[in-house]
Amino acid sequence: MKELLQDSLFFGVGISIGTFLLGTLIKKKWNFFLFNPLLLSITATIATLLIIGIDYQHYNNGAKYLSYLLTPATVALAIPLYEQTMLLKKNFTAIIVGIASGVLMSFVSIFAMALLFRLGHTEYVTLLPKSITTAIGISLSQELQGYVAITVTAIIMTGLLGNIAGGIICRILGIKHPIAKGIAIGTASHVMGTAKAMEIGEIEGAMSSLSIAVAGCMTVGAAIFFEGLI
């Protein structure tokens, strides 16, 4: 059974989509925020791999074709953004200053907490790219000579939080304006948060898409000033 499954090209994609579907059904039935399809699917997939005893490499041999679609899907985020171009032009200053504040807050908060936890330079720079999209985060972590695999983990934890609780956090914080919500979710939790913002609304989704690109580039630019602090 194990040999049969681990060499299969479709097992990885099958189990991923299957558990995601199951998660979506559970979310529909019981609308509780921790019943997030993405979280449920990740947990169920990891559990299945551990139980059957299939390692990540074998799983990813098939599952990587799902990740492959991420580039074209991110390109497609230009579509909702284009549909909201009027809104972008009208609120240009608010949007750019808002994203810049988020990026600055990311650096400052990571720096402060790294001091608190007495992290070394390598651990500190590993966490710096955590709010930006994985592809930019990986390159930045490499450039700063951090632990790339851990950067990816931090990026995913961040994204998961945005995907699970982005809407709830905004509500608690009193962020009500659809543009502000989209900017908050996209700047803080990149593409994974944006997937959630798309569900909340068209404006939120479009603004979140924009934030991924702008916050990513701003983070790369500003990282040089912050990397030497610890």
Partner: peptide, 27 residues
């Protein structure tokens, strides 16, 4: 512990900063 705390806390802080500043300027 550091990774989890920093990842989660800074995400909320970034949302607060980006969201509120955008909202204040728009208003």
């Amino acid at each position: 512990t550091a990774i989890i705390v920093i990842s989660l806390a800074s995400t909320v802080l970034v949302m607060a900063a980006a969201g509120h500043i955008t909202q204040i300027i728009i208003k």
